[in-house]
Computed example of a mutant assay.
Amino acid sequence: MRRFLFALSLGLFAMPAAMAADPPPLAQYHARDGRADAWQGGVRMIPIKTPVGEFKVWTKRVGNNPRIKVLLLHGGPGATHEAFEAFDSFLPADGVEYYYYDQLGSYYSDQPDDPKLLTTDRFVEEVEQVRIALGLDKDNFYLLGHSWGGILAMEYALKHQDHLKGLVISNMVSSIPAYNKYASDVLMPELDPAALAELKQLDAARDYANPRFEELLIPHYEHHVLRRPISEWPEPVVRSFMKHLNKKVYVPMQGPSELGASGILADWDRTEDLSKITVPTLVIGARYDTMDPKYMEMMSEKLPKGDYLYLPNGSHCAFYDDQDAYFAGLLKFLHRVDDDAK
């Protein structure tokens, strides 16, 4: 079959990630490679031009691989790269070079308070400026977007895929109306009826600062965002989504919660444009995701070079709660695309 479905029954996930391919020698992986970022431990503040002025965004390089360089687009919007720190436990052992990156408005980057900056087109141009500054191109450049980052990754590919070697859409559907329908038809009915009624009252009053609003959503977050009690959530996730989330970005674009979207992105839909993305693309979906896993599988079938990774134990943050399966599938995809390009 032209397309493949990664599954536990293949036995792939029992293998250590590093066995998927021979990594570069350790000295090569940690080589500075003539780059000036050694002084900053791989960190660079990259100047970004916008319609309202010039700002800086934070990036950090890990590793050195001339053929596989992954730029990570975090979720939110308005969260941070920090939730991706679990990648440190898997990608270095496999020799993959990757870049953390806080988008404009996020904690480690500049945080201008201007609604004119909150458009997908402007974020796409920001990613393109970051790509140029980092020297990434079609011979090595993989873009991985999670959640809102998946929206941004799709938009980037539709405009700049000539610079891409591969694309990963992690835990994101290509239609916000479809996301909202799934939330309404499947996720909301799972909530206690009294809790759902109170949530709707708070929403109607726009009383999002009320502590009850977040309290009532905890069962949803623990079942569909990251499948652990919130008291046990990994510290990088707590930093990214709780301590460092910029709600001046998140709320206008997404809305007040992860239970559907009601902000600027509410009408966003690129499903009919997926056939225009011709680079190898991996779509990652999970059984307990906030997004419909069958919809994400359908997306992979619309993509000319699409594959689907289904995670039977995962939720929206499947790189934590179905971790071994997530990274085994991701690394297999990265190396397969690289092998096909040789």
Rank of each mutant, 00 (worst) to 15 (best):
D292W: 06
R3F: 08
V249T: 07
K56P: 03
V168P: 01
D307N: 13
N64I: 01
G306C: 09
R131W: 08
S240V: 03
H160M: 09
V62M: 05
D322K: 04
D102F: 01
E128I: 00
E222H: 07
T281Q: 00
D269G: 10
I284N: 00
F13H: 11
D322F: 04
Y320I: 07
P66Q: 07
A17C: 12
W268R: 13
I230W: 10
Y99H: 10
Y182S: 02
E235N: 09
I230N: 08
W148T: 00
Q323P: 00
M188Q: 09
A183K: 06
P115C: 10
I151D: 00
L5W: 10
G95W: 01
F241C: 02
L167A: 03
F213K: 12
F90P: 00
P219A: 12
P115R: 15
G34Y: 11
A133E: 11
S89E: 14
K276H: 13
L12C: 04
N64E: 10
Q28Y: 03
G76E: 02
A328T: 14
E222M: 07
H220V: 09
H146T: 10
V62C: 02
K342Q: 06
A36H: 03
G166V: 02
T281I: 05
E258L: 11
P92R: 05
K243C: 01
R35L: 09
F84S: 00
K332F: 14
E128C: 03
L136Q: 04
K248M: 03
G53T: 12
G285L: 07
K243W: 08
A18H: 11
A197I: 05
H30G: 09
L309P: 11
K200L: 14
D114S: 13
N313G: 13
D94G: 14
K248Q: 15
Y142K: 01
G306N: 09
S174W: 02
R206P: 04
I230P: 06
A83Y: 02
G42T: 04
D307W: 07
A79L: 07
W233G: 01
L5M: 14
G149S: 04
P23H: 06
R67L: 08
L282S: 02
S240D: 07
R287P: 01
L167H: 03
M15N: 11
F84C: 02
Q40A: 14
E301H: 15
L311T: 01
H316L: 06
M15R: 15
K69W: 04
M45F: 10
P280C: 08
G314D: 05
A183M: 07
P234F: 02
L73Y: 11
D338T: 15
S262E: 11
H81L: 09
E198Q: 10
Y288M: 08
Y108H: 15
E125M: 09
W268C: 02
F84D: 00
L196A: 06
F141S: 03
L309S: 13
V249K: 05
D113Y: 13
D273Q: 15
Y326A: 12
S147M: 06
G95D: 04
R2D: 14
A38M: 08
K342H: 13
D289Q: 03
F6Q: 09
Y100G: 02
F84M: 06
K138E: 12
K305D: 11
V52K: 14
F84I: 01
Y98G: 07
G285Q: 06
